[in-house]
């Protein structure tokens, strides 16, 4: 009896363990941010820069940003008002403190409730995670900008930001 149970227990243990590992892999640990799936948002927010995952900022940030598109990091990025309304609704619904909180909660640690930070690269957690990147790497001609995630995170377009 004992002899036949033991392999079963082992199998059960192994299954339980892999379920745990797979579960966190699917959630991506703290380095997975589901990429923008909405075609309209991909098109309008992804032509000048990577279409940043909505879970990387709180809803208040997206509302503020979409209200100031005429002064968007030094560019006039205005879009048709009806398009802007749809984009805002989608970003807000999937923000890091709403629909996307299981992905964005860690990145948004240290951000005051109700605050509307505009730069993902200014979030306390982002700054901590990138503190070891030397200045010359940021200035590299293939990088150019801290917003150019894919220069180092090869899988950023698919949502993965492991090292």
């Amino acid at each position: 009896m004992k002899m036949t149970l033991r392999p079963l227990v082992l199998v059960a243990l192994a299954a339980g363990f892999s379920a745990l590992v797979l579960g966190s892999a699917r959630a991506g640990g703290s380095h997975f941010f589901p990429p923008v799936s909405e075609p309209l948002v991909r098109e309008e927010c992804g032509s000048c820069h990577l279409a940043f995952a909505p879970s990387m900022l709180p809803a208040a940030s997206w509302r503020k940003m979409m209200g100031e598109l005429d002064r968007h990091f030094g560019e006039d990025a205005t879009v048709d008002p009806e398009i802007a309304r749809k984009i805002t609704a989608w970003l807000v619904a999937n923000a890091g403190d709403s629909g996307g909180s299981r992905y964005g909660a860690k990145l948004l640690r240290g951000v005051d409730a109700g605050a509307a930070p505009q730069r993902i690269t200014g979030l306390p957690k982002w700054v901590r995670e990138h503190r070891e990147v030397p200045d010359w790497e940021w200035r590299h001609k293939e990088v150019r900008s801290k917003a150019n995630c894919v220069a180092c995170h090869a899988d950023a377009e698919r949502g993965y930001y492991e090292d």
Binding site: C48, H49, L50, E75, E142, V143, R144, S145, A147, N148, V150, A151
Partner: peptide, 13 residues
């Protein structure tokens, strides 16, 4: 300069 080649946005994209 050459429209057959890709370009680079200010963001690096």
């Amino acid at each position: 300069q050459d429209p057959r080649q890709p370009g680079t946005a200010r963001s690096g994209k």
